[in-house]
Write a protein that binds this DNA or RNA. Sequence first.
DNA 1: CGACCATTTGATATGGATCAAGCGATGTGG
DNA 2: CCACATCGCTTGATCCATATCAAATGGTCG
Lengths: 227, 227
Amino acid sequence: MPRRTANRRGSSKRPSEQSSSAGGKGESNGAIELMGISMSFPLGAELYGESEPADYLYKVIRGTVRTYKVLIDGRRQVGSFYVAGDIFGLEIGAEHSLSAEAVTACKVLVIKRSALVSLAGRDHDVARQLRTITDSELRRVQGHMILLIKSAQERVASFLLEMSERASHHRSVELPMSRQDIADYLGLTIETVSRTLTILEDAAIIELSSTKRILLRNRSALTRLNA
Amino acid sequence: MPRRTANRRGSSKRPSEQSSSAGGKGESNGAIELMGISMSFPLGAELYGESEPADYLYKVIRGTVRTYKVLIDGRRQVGSFYVAGDIFGLEIGAEHSLSAEAVTACKVLVIKRSALVSLAGRDHDVARQLRTITDSELRRVQGHMILLIKSAQERVASFLLEMSERASHHRSVELPMSRQDIADYLGLTIETVSRTLTILEDAAIIELSSTKRILLRNRSALTRLNA
DNA sequence: CGACCATTTGATATGGATCAAGCGATGTGG
DNA sequence: CCACATCGCTTGATCCATATCAAATGGTCG
């Protein structure tokens, strides 16, 4: 179990509001998009903190966001990374159970939860969409839980495949987050993540074009490792 | 990462239906209870399998149920244990993502999902209840994920506290499940679970009255271990 | 009482953490 | 434009928690 502490960059709270109404990128969620205002956050900014009231829901327009929780002893667990098109912050209870930070400078749609819930009361289609979002979040967390009982190689392989599936290019993956972020997501140390990547490269399964860009040379080998 | 295979008792599918209408025990979920029929399952029976259609939702009346997933290499991850009053099987998508089995002989209310969803469309109160159930499930899984990055002692301590909170007696816990079940829930081996219990007993934190009954002699020490 | 299965205990192996350098990229001041 | 500092990443050496393998114990049911 890793004991290493997480890194933390500067965090400037309450960012500058920008424009109202929806952007047009990513998959559309119909009516949901129309209700949000767009906001930009610099790298490292906190979008919300754990146990703050969960009054808003977010949709990533550009950039990457991480959600995470810090345990009393300083260990950090990253819950998820969200990229363009992803919706997050949807908690039905009153408070967020994780914090959210900008992994890169990013732009997100911020949508008032109460408005959405009341709309869902009238519009069954919106209600169904909300259920779908919650459901996929539940499955994602379940999958993440399964990931955490696997070996280091399996975890890293799963991670690379997951990231490649949500990015546009399928042969090369751009990793916007640091090794520490990846380690905290996978429940490993940066050293183990780094070593594992090297092992995969030596096995000609991947190629580290640069630190943050990885070429998947043998996807089926990764899938096999995925166990 | 444990490689040990899971145990498996006999499983008699499609159990005997018993009586209609709701039982009166546990916390009430109002209207939801009225829609179910009661069914009994013998020890080890499968209530549903992973990737079967998720047409029903279940409420435990008596006994204990486990949900789990078996990985290709035979490792088993237990997702949760459900006891009297708990609702499970609530997946919004079309298929179950885990299987469910009776840990002990048990009686459950089986509720048709479609009926409930359509009722929720008319009754906002039912809709809210469904959201609440989903939400607590999401939080539970998140908590379980956090558990899996902790040390063996922390995991076992968390487990004992969790079990004690949902049982009636607060000083002694009855564990209906086997050590293998516990191990598969905590992502450990039975040996490690057993040894950890012994260590906690030697430290006078717990007392193993019998294999399946544990006395919590020092709850605050457990809470401290809970990290 | 004897057989069987679950649990505990013991001995050893190992994957990943920890501790400690080294290295390479990025940015800063001269 | 270059020397140097800084930061994130990689690589190396060692340690340790937990897995694995194996045997002993104990509880349950015929």
